[in-house]
Amino acid sequence: MSPYMQEVIAMTRRWFQRFKREPMSIIFGLTQPVLWLALFGNSGVTFRNAGAIPGASNYIAFMTGGVVVMTVLNSGLAGGIEMLFDKENGFLERLMAAPIKRSALIISRFLFVTALTGVQALMILGMAFLFGVVPATGWLGVGLILVIGMMLGIGFTAISMALAFSMKGHGGFFALLGFITLPLIFMSSALVPLQSMPGWLSVIAQLNPMTYAIDAVRGLILSGWHISLVKVLIVLAVFDAICLTWSNRILLRGMR
């Protein structure tokens, strides 16, 4: 095993060990999405212009895609928090004093957060299945949903880690998270399809990478395969590349 692999594995293992000791965090992380599904999805809301979304006979099937992506957003944006704690309590410095490549730590965090979001997305799809939502594209579609979720998650995790290293303390970090999360959700197609938005909002929503992920996931659940999925994957790849480049600069400067 190469020294680099040994570093990455050891630090990824640490994230899982920490997680294992606090299993409630995944439960709480799933509370919000489940509430979205259970309360909103089953509230009997139907679209006046239901024809706008083919196959969206009920709101819960429509919501599933949005809820998956919102969960990815939350987990991704929370992904940097542990790094911030490490930085604050001196553990990061302890790690940095070891002869390790700095990128090994960053990669370990991505591996963990990405695995976590994948599992969460799967659990939401399972929950939706219990409410009667069966993805139109079957298992292959579920696989692609996970890929889309993870790609979006990587970008958000990168943003989160960069913020963690730019902020003075975790107080400011949490305040900022609270400040950006809701607007990101409202300015996407999570709750309302693009077609039903006022024009100005739909313009903004189309700049939000979440919208692409949501519409893709929604399509895979409601209708089936579509050529626009390729575009979505390209958009997400570009989003990841931008976020990673930007965060990498900040992280490596912060870790020397």
Binding site: E7, R13, R21, N89, G90, F91, R94, L95
Partner: peptide, 29 residues
């Protein structure tokens, strides 16, 4: 060449003592 014992209690509260040792054993290859 060096070992470093920082000023703060820079330990991970969620890990056991042995898990700490395994982590650093790997970080020092």
């Amino acid at each position: 060449l060096i070992g470093y014992i920082p000023q703060e209690r820079a330990v991970d509260r969620a890990l056991t003592g042995r898990e700490h040792m395994a982590l650093f054993a790997d970080l020092y290859h």
